[in-house]
Write a protein that binds this DNA or RNA. Sequence first.
DNA 1: AGCCTATACTCTCCTTTGGTAAGTAGGCAC
DNA 2: GTGCCTACTTACCAAAGGAGAGTATAGGCT
Lengths: 138, 138
Amino acid sequence: MKKALPDPMIEARRAHPPPAQTDPVVGALVDEIIGRVADKWTMLILEALEDHGTLRFTQLGRHVGDISQKMLTKTVRQMERDGLVARTVYPVVPPRVEYSLTELGRTLGAAFCGVWIWAETYHAQIEAARKAFAERGG
Amino acid sequence: MKKALPDPMIEARRAHPPPAQTDPVVGALVDEIIGRVADKWTMLILEALEDHGTLRFTQLGRHVGDISQKMLTKTVRQMERDGLVARTVYPVVPPRVEYSLTELGRTLGAAFCGVWIWAETYHAQIEAARKAFAERGG
DNA sequence: AGCCTATACTCTCCTTTGGTAAGTAGGCAC
DNA sequence: GTGCCTACTTACCAAAGGAGAGTATAGGCT
């Protein structure tokens, strides 16, 4: 499907990678995106939609877990705005709204996949580190 | 949305996990870890230490960008607690404190690597999606 | 002696963000 | 009529986070 639009700056950077360093312009842009995408609720909603496909508002909330309706609405709207989720409204009563990942959302889900695997793999080490930290006086 | 009354569909799914699916106990644990690790500052600090190796407090802050000292202190301490960064204090005046990634931190950095590549690859599409969203009346 | 500098915080105040609980719309079953 | 269903809003309050000033103190300069 939609191939990544060739970004000349990124391509140039990849062709001549400075000592493992990003160029400042792209770096700033990327940091901005990271700031929007790297939050708890975005990641959890992404996971829920990845695992269960299309979901209605309330179902989505249940799968995410301890999220307030306010944050669910807000986060999902932000994700829609960023082209990560598709929101389909059926004009019926009672209302019916379905959420699913777009192609772009699925690529992000794939990117985050490594983080989930990491969490699954190392959560025991984190617990251990935390205990050690507490014991030497945090 | 707090208590999540037992949803029969969810329960059924947990009883018979589809292939390549996490078990609910580990899943909850993982979600908790995601909640701690998936925040803007943690990711940006991780990136800074990955790119530049050992850094002192003020240098780290400069590399991260627009972070307040309060959040830098807090986030870095949390990361130390979780075993992601090592904090070395030299008892000299003026004070000197060095931060670097632990082995565990480096594995997390590697896991997040995919997200940075995603952001670099797709930021143009996000901008486009946002513009389209605004035009059809956000 | 007195003063200044450097660094890694910490503290106080204030703004922004997020949670909680109570609406709201409106067709349908009763 | 009453109540129910669902996907939101809204009002209010608590918590998180930013801005800027303050702290400690060895060494250098005057």
